[in-house]
Design a protein around this nucleic acid. Structure first.
Lengths: 237, 237
DNA sequence: TTGACACAGATTGTTAACAATGCAGAACTT
DNA sequence: AAGTTCTGCATTGTTAACAATCTGTGTCAA
């Protein structure tokens, strides 16, 4: 388990149930246990979490405001399904923001930060050896959030976490069957570049990594399992 | 009036009333018409916008998820009141993100983008000549959103707008009576640096500008009009 | 005068019933 | 058989009443 539970979405509102629902769905998306287009019916969520409908609706509204859930009027809530254009936007934004993050870290990263990052990569390697796919996916994304957290800046961390989560959806939608979840040793390289103290090489490392992830996607072609396909098939066969 | 009404918060949910409430409060905060700590009672908002309580509560929840409103359990909603630490975090985040934005723009900015930016600065000068304080404040913040919009990236724009809006709250809280809203010609300098095509000087320009704004604040001392002060005064005099 | 306590009013939080909408399947027509 | 319309069910959206909490005021005792 990751320890991102401490700051969460740092909404200061004290609402145990509601925060729990949001976090659970958030985590499920991060771990790709909830596929895009999955319907999130209010009744099902009420029973799952044992709360009233109001809490569920509030949680869904919050998730929709972060682009994780798509609220369709009178039709219900679905796990968001980013378009290829949105996907490109997310990657451009991540490049811009995360290069800044690592450049600054290269200039001044605390010792505890480096230790946390190395420990994180260690966990990734363990998960990879165990072929724990869910854990691998979850930790791969969480690494980038950890980079942001090194700045001890909740605003920055929140932004990155939102983008990373949306990236999970994007990978789920556009990821090719090839090892799209294979940062392998790239995360370690990023850490090395940071500790080397050279902003430029740190920037290069993260840029290379993000472009690598993006290039493992198939943003040009059709998305996976688009809804029309079913109708087309049933209509033609 | 600014033309930021077109993409808004780009929530795809089609809810005219609700979006209107959120935008109105959002704009009011941007223009510093709504001071921090202002109570936003549900009844008052219902009457103001002529909608039911549900819509108001949903709008407040959305605003709170963006750090604009502080929802206190059983006590109501208040315009957020960022702490000095939060303020510093916002500025660090802005520095990191906006330097990336202008660096990229320096490498490749469209002609229409430059025109839009120059037109914006023009409007700022007009507002300054007219001593239209509200408009000046609003446009000063909007300029940074315009910079982000040059990338035609709704994700990036949304992030920047959120940070800019929170900055309005911060300036309202920590701004000294000195001309804290005086970018003067700094915005123009940023554009010049961008069109010059040199990423480094563009970065320098925006960094200088943001630090200038931050330095015009008083983040060390006490905040303006803290609530205890009233009680202290009434208790002692 | 000061402090504690209790009460009334106002405001927020929650629930449940109701209305509206969409969806799927049946029946009907061609 | 294909398409269309209609109807019933399931789900979502809205409203209003109720419950819980807080705030301010007034009273009382020290």
């Amino acid at each position: 388990m990751t320890n991102q539970a401490e700051d969460k979405l740092d909404t200061l509102r004290t609402d145990p149930d509601e925060q729990m629902i949001v976090d659970r769905i958030y985590s499920a998306v991060m771990e790709q246990k909830l596929a895009p287009r999955t319907k999130l019916s209010e009744l099902a969520l009420c029973e799952t979490f044992g709360v009233g409908r109001m809490r569920v609706r509030r949680a869904l509204l919050l998730l929709s405001s972060q682009g994780i859930v798509d609220l369709q009027s009178n039709r219900g809530a679905y796990v968001a399904c980013p378009s290829a254009d949105e996907a490109r936007e997310v990657f451009v934004a991540r490049l811009m923001i995360e290069t800044g993050i690592v450049r600054e870290l290269a200039r001044d990263v605390g010792e505890t930060g480096v230790q946390t990052l190395r420990a994180h990569v260690e966990k990734e390697e363990v998960a990879r050896q165990n072929d724990d796919r869910t854990e691998i996916i979850s930790l791969s994304g969480a690494f980038h959030v950890e980079l942001a957290r090194c700045h001890e800046n909740s605003v920055l961390t929140r932004v990155v976490r939102e983008l990373v989560t949306r990236t999970s959806l994007i990978v789920a939608l556009f990821g090719t069957n090839q090892a799209s979840t294979c940062p392998d040793d790239e995360h370690a390289s990023i850490i090395d570049a940071i500790v080397s103290g050279d902003p430029q090489s740190a920037e290069d490392a993260i840029r290379h990594h993000l472009l690598h992830v993006q290039n493992s996607l198939d943003l040009e072609q059709t998305q996976k399992a688009e809804p029309d396909l079913v109708k087309i098939l049933t209509g033609r066969m």
